[in-house]
Simulated scan of single mutants.
Amino acid sequence: MRGTQVIEQPVHLEGITDRLVNEATGFMSEQNAQQKPFLLVLNFIKVHTAHFPNKHFKGKSGFGKYGDCVLEMDDGIGKILDYLREYNLRDNTFVYFSSDNGGHLEEVGADGVAEGGSNGIYKGGKGHGAMEGGIRVPTAVMWPNKIPPQAVISVPTSQMDVFSTVHEILRIPEPNDRIIDGKSMLSLLLKPKSTPSAHQFLFHYCGTYLHGVRYVESADNIWKLYFSKPKYKPGQYKCQFMCMCFGAHVVHYNPPLLYNIASDPGENISIDINSDIKYQRIVDKISEEVKNHKQSVASVPSQFDFENTIWRPWLQPCCQFPTCSCSENQVKK
Rank of each mutant, 00 (worst) to 15 (best):
Phe241Val: 13
Lys333Gln: 15
Val137Glu: 00
Gly120Leu: 08
Asn176Leu: 04
Asn308Thr: 08
Leu20Asn: 02
Gln34Leu: 13
Met28Gly: 04
Asp284Leu: 10
Val166Ala: 02
Ser275His: 00
Leu258Tyr: 10
Cys318Tyr: 04
Ile271Leu: 14
Phe201Met: 12
Asp284Ser: 14
Glu267Val: 14
Thr49Ser: 11
Thr4Arg: 15
Thr309His: 01
Asn32Met: 07
Ile80Lys: 00
Ile222Trp: 07
Ser99Lys: 07
Met185Val: 07
His204Tyr: 08
Asn101His: 14
Tyr209Val: 08
Asp272Val: 12
Glu107His: 10
Ser218Met: 07
Pro53Gln: 02
Gln5Glu: 12
Ile147Phe: 15
Val155Ala: 01
Lys294Asp: 06
Lys191Ser: 14
Ala114Cys: 05
Ile80Cys: 03
Val11Tyr: 15
Gln34Phe: 08
Arg85Asp: 12
Gln35Glu: 13
Val162Leu: 15
Ile80Thr: 00
Ala298Cys: 09
Asp181Lys: 11
Asp276Ser: 04
Ala24Leu: 07
Arg2Gln: 13
Ser299Pro: 05
Lys58Ser: 09
Gln200Asp: 14
Glu289Val: 00
Lys285Ile: 14
Val6Cys: 07
Asp181Val: 06
Asn54Val: 01
Val47Cys: 01
Gly207Gln: 06
Glu132Gln: 12
Ile77Asn: 01
Gly64Thr: 10
Tyr96Phe: 15
Val283Met: 12
